[in-house]
Nucleic acid binder design. Structure first.
Length: 493
RNA sequence: GGCCCUAUCGUCUAACGGUUAGGACGCCGGCUUUUCAAGCCGUUAAUCCGGGUUCGAUUCCCGGUAGGGUCACCA
């Protein structure tokens, strides 16, 4: 816990270069949670200083992702706070002002080299197997900055830096980590290295939370703070999220998914928040299922993990099911309805009442039900209304006790007898319990598995489905008989 | 290659010098007057290696090893 009285201010500062993935979101979430825990302020800031890498639409995507997850910002785009604007490309004068300060103190100078020349220096260093340091090529006499050449920082003190990180503890790095980094690029935009420092100062950010990849550049940041005569904020470095199976950091190139894809696939925002929070953090006891507000109430930086955690899809599925079960019946129904494609809704047999009836069945099998192709629930529902597709041998599959010679005939006779039984049930009694009672004696007689499995398959066209009696009730008497008949046709062909 | 960081079941993790090393997901097994699935119950399964310090190390120190990060006019 923070001991001084200063209000905690955290920020999430993404760059609009594409979609948000779980790594980005986890960083946002932790900054958000820490602010909430302390009744502080959570700022969203868009770092769009690289116009070449910018992808149009990604700012909207960031907004939508955060809103979906309930990571609401107290200050930022759309919510004008005292430090507006919150988009870096609209704050260029500010960076220039700070650059001038450094320039006046003799702590900045225009880069006299072309990009190509610098590249040659770098290549040479690489060949000599030593780290490249621009400051080794620092010009003897600084020219006047015309605002067109890149402006570089002149590191005032080449020394070893030591600092404290809320997650990693004492950290340090030697002189080799310091260099004359670019403050303002040739195109007039500041670099991340400079812009984020200026903004964090201006916005009163007290805690900087970001990924581990920034540890090695922290000495560079510290030297800038020093040059500016400003006390740096508190750092809390987050461990990386690793890709499933591998030991690679989960990044876009390693198959990190768009966070909104999870929404598309049926994951609830509560699931994602809970899951992501627990990737690198835990409350210290056995609880696994915690709401965002519960987590926010107990969120403690000292319990953040130091090492990277692998993303585990199975646990995510399990957690999603836990949350799905917690939903009210109405919400479950609404959830399912959302995943039914219009093409299904347009089918003659379709009605909201059917959805209402099958809701418990669908919810019950969602965790593994998500395995249906695109993992959308729509897939589960399709086969209730579409024509099932099945093959002779699959119909026979598992009916192991039936003699091989005339297996298809025997199976067909089972189904035939089932039709007679089903046909004898009055419409008003056509519910799963009554159907089961009616078929049961016959099923016991010929062997449960031998008959129930083919019925399941004949009705659904799948080897995994709700129990066959439930299927019959959902399909209705007419459709049930029709499907059983077409299965017989296939068997006797 | 230089520098930095990390290291407990397959995975996420608990244990802040003394525990039969705990939990969760998965796996495996069992149960349920219904095949799968779900559900319930249960079982497997870990302190990277080598030295110290200590009466005692998962825990503290050192060295290896392995993994990760970083050395941009990207963030």
């Amino acid at each position: 816990m923070n001991t001084d009285n200063k209000k905690i201010v955290t920020r999430f500062a993404p760059s609009p270069t594409g979609f948000m993935h779980v790594g980005n979101v986890r960083t946002a979430l932790f900054a958000y949670l820490w602010a909430k825990r302390n009744n502080g302020t959570f700022i969203l800031r868009i770092e769009d200083t690289d116009k070449e890498r910018e992808v149009s639409g990604s700012i909207e995507h960031i907004f939508e992702s955060l809103k979906w997850l309930g990571i609401d910002w107290d200050e930022g785009p759309g919510i004008d706070g005292p430090h507006a604007p919150y988009i870096q490309s609209q704050r260029l004068d500010l960076y220039k002002k700070y650059a001038m300060k450094l320039l006046e103190k003799g702590l900045a100078y225009p880069d006299p080299y072309t990009e190509e020349e610098v590249a040659v220096f770098r290549q040479k260093a690489e060949e000599e197997k030593r780290p490249f340091l621009y400051r080794e090529h620092r010009p003897d006499h600084d020219k006047e900055w015309d605002g067109r050449a890149p402006l570089r920082f002149k590191v005032p003190n080449i020394k070893r830096y030591e600092w404290y990180d809320l997650v990693f503890g004492d950290l340090s790095a030697g002189e080799e980590a310091l260099d004359d980094i670019i403050l303002i690029k040739g195109d007039g935009y500041p670099t991340y290295n400079f812009a984020h420092i200026v903004d964090d100062i201006e916005m009163g950010v007290t805690h900087v939370m970001r990924g581990q990849e920034f540890i090695s550049s922290t000495p560079k940041f510290l030297s800038i703070y020093e040059g500016l005569d400003i006390v740096p904020p508190i750092f809390a470095t987050l461990p990386p999220i690793m890709a499933t199976g591998g030991n690679k950091k989960l990044g876009k190139r390693d198959g990190a998914k768009d966070i909104l894809d999870y929404r598309k696939e049926g994951y609830l925002p509560e699931t994602m928040v809970n899951f992501l929070a627990f990737l690198g953090w835990n409350p210290g006891d056995d609880r696994e299922v915690m709401s965002a507000s519960e987590i926010a109430n107990e969120f403690d930086i000292s319990r953040i993990q130091k090492s990277g955690a692998q993303f585990n899809d199975e646990k995510l599925d399990w957690l999603n099911k836990e949350y799905l079960k917690k939903l009210s019946y109405e919400d479950q129904e609404e959830y399912i309805l959302k995943f039914i494609p219009e093409s299904i809704k347009g089918l003659p047999g379709f009605s909201n009442e059917i959805v209402h009836n099958i809701t418990p069945v669908v919810i019950d099998r969602v965790s593994k039900g998500l395995d249906v192709e695109t993992m959308a629930l729509a897939g589960e529902l399709v086969y209730y209304f579409g024509k099932p597709v099945y093959e002779k041998d699959v119909l026979f599959f598992k009916s192991s006790k039936i003699p091989q010679e005339n297996k298809y005939e025997i199976l067909a006779s089972y189904l035939d007898k089932s039709i007679i039984i089903v046909d004898g049930i009055l419409e008003e009694n056509f519910n799963k319990d009554f159907i089961k009672e009616s078929i049961w004696p016959y099923a016991e007689e010929v062997g449960r598995g031998d008959i129930l499995w083919p019925i399941r398959y004949a009705l659904s066209g799948r080897d995994k489905s709700p129990d066959p009696f439930m299927l019959m009730e959902i399909l209705g008497k007419k459709e049930t008989i029709e499907r059983l008949k077409s299965a017989i046709q296939i068997l006797t062909k």
